[in-house]
Design a protein around this nucleic acid. Structure first.
Length: 112
DNA sequence: ATGATGACTAACG
DNA sequence: GCGTTAGCCATCA
């Protein structure tokens, strides 16, 4: 029954609503791998089809666009977020906490 | 096999 | 908030 971790990450990312953002750590905790935030980033980087996921909505714990280098061009991540209404300054989403979406408080664990 | 690396984070001072 | 340190673990060289 244990689904592949990467696939589970992709499913959670797909569930992030438009104009909301979350963090690597929040996803890891939701999946029961609280100390493996790095693995969430690795999973996204390994994604066979990055653009089919709202991967740009996953930021680090302080709202920084640490994954921008995996986009082509790197500025694309920022563009996608601006398109959703976010204001970005110094590679960081402003009011990160305001738009933070926690999988643990919005998704049902059994389904992921 | 082995050691380094990295879309990370929590703890401590 | 900042700098440092220490866990983390699949992937990469």
């Amino acid at each position: 029954m244990t689904k592949d971790f990467y696939q589970r990450v992709y499913r959670v990312v797909q569930a992030i609503p438009r104009s909301r953002v979350t963090s690597y750590g929040a996803i890891a905790r939701f999946l029961g791998a609280g100390r493996s935030a790095r693995l969430v980033g690795t999973a996204l980087k390994q994604s066979p089809d990055l653009l089919s996921l709202p991967a740009h909505r996953v930021l680090n714990r302080s709202g920084q666009l640490t994954g921008r280098h995996a986009f082509h061009p790197p500025e694309l991540m920022e563009e996608l977020l601006r398109d959703e209404g976010f204001t970005i300054r110094d590679s960081q989403v402003e009011e990160f906490q305001t738009y933070f979406w926690d999988p643990s408080q919005n998704l049902i664990p059994e389904n992921y």
